[in-house]
Simulated assay, not measured.
Amino acid sequence: PGRRTDAGFAFLVNSGNANAFTGRAGRDAVAASAATVANALAIPERHVLVASTGVIGEPLPVERITASLAALRDGLAPDRAGEAARAILTTDTFPKGAAARVDLGGVGATIIGFAKGSGMIAPDMATMLAFLFTDAAIDRDLLQAMLAGVADRTFNCITVDSDTSTSDTLLLAATGRVAMGPIAAADDPRADAFRAALHAVMLDLAQQVVRDGEGATKFVEVAVTGAASDGDARKVARAIANSPLVKTALAGEDPNWGRIVMAVGKSGAAADRDRLAIRFGEIVVAENGQVAASYAEAAGAAYMKAQELVIGVDLGIGAGTANVWTCDLTHRYVEINADYRS
């Protein structure tokens, strides 16, 4: 939930240890670290928000954190966001950041954010941490609703390996430092502009997570249209994006579109074979329930060599749509996760 205070707030984040499935000791560690941050910054404990990511089930050595907090406080500076983005990484190969400027009725405001995530990534939201900040003045409840709605179309539409995790956090802080009347209602024209900018930042971060998927060599958009409902479209898109057979075919640059048909069938969404159409980018692969007369396997194989791919599926039975972003499944993914704790 959103929080507002004139006393200030703090985010405390650690990587390498998820502090999950650690029982009472884990709860005590959170309380101790939050209390130490509150004391160091002279803010209420309830305004210290704590996030962790890393190995599950290992006790958190909280004393190592609390012993460092005075130095962290003294080192706080507006130009250290890049260091913060790097500090929270686990198996990530690069820090992930994004920013946008937005005109709010003639007043400029900024939205910035950084995130981490590479494996155990699937909707709702997986082992991903994301922290967003804006200087716009906006009502807390409205901002909460915006954040949830945009997350459903960005972070909850990505998958690396279909696995969720114990550690997932998305936090947005609005400082209200811009001199402007606050955005207090959804019908305020400035709300649409802010929402669009927020969507741009969050989609950028979400797609960076997929691009950095463990062992990934392909960035893939699964675009589903013509479903009975948006919910059905999302079922189909997720079934394709999460299929090990589809993902390994992508890794092998094999245009095995039969595996896409399989994923549509297993999704549980309403479908009609004789209305189904499949595309690889602009290449029509199948239509009316069979391979397209114009399709050439060589063209599909050539398309699969690209690093960025679009798989299009039209179910032909309604107006439902969905987009999900994923990556391929490679030998390197197996190596990373086989050796994760070694």
Results as ranks from 00 to 15, higher is better:
10 A>V: 11
12 L>W: 06
16 G>R: 11
16 G>P: 10
21 F>S: 04
25 A>V: 09
39 N>Y: 10
40 A>H: 13
41 L>P: 04
49 L>M: 11
53 T>D: 05
59 P>M: 06
61 P>L: 02
61 P>G: 00
67 A>E: 15
68 S>G: 11
68 S>L: 13
69 L>N: 10
70 A>M: 11
73 R>I: 08
74 D>E: 14
80 R>F: 01
85 A>N: 03
92 D>G: 01
93 T>C: 07
94 F>N: 04
96 K>P: 00
97 G>F: 07
97 G>T: 14
103 D>H: 09
104 L>P: 05
106 G>L: 00
107 V>I: 03
114 F>W: 06
117 G>I: 14
120 M>D: 01
122 A>H: 14
123 P>M: 11
129 L>K: 09
130 A>L: 15
135 D>V: 07
136 A>F: 02
137 A>W: 12
139 D>N: 08
140 R>A: 09
141 D>Y: 05
144 Q>P: 01
147 L>T: 11
150 V>H: 07
162 S>Q: 12
165 S>Y: 12
167 S>T: 15
168 D>R: 13
174 A>P: 04
174 A>K: 05
174 A>Y: 06
175 T>Y: 02
176 G>H: 04
183 I>T: 07
184 A>Y: 06
186 A>S: 12
186 A>C: 10
187 D>G: 05
189 P>H: 06
193 A>P: 08
194 F>R: 04
196 A>C: 08
200 A>G: 11
202 M>E: 06
210 V>M: 06
211 R>K: 14
220 V>N: 03
223 A>D: 07
224 V>P: 02
226 G>P: 08
234 R>N: 03
241 A>T: 00
242 N>S: 07
250 L>W: 03
254 D>S: 08
256 N>C: 03
262 M>G: 00
266 K>R: 13
274 D>S: 15
282 E>K: 14
286 A>W: 07
286 A>G: 11
288 N>K: 15
295 Y>G: 02
300 G>C: 04
306 A>K: 13
306 A>L: 10
311 I>V: 14
318 G>N: 12
322 A>M: 03
323 N>A: 02
324 V>K: 00
329 L>C: 05
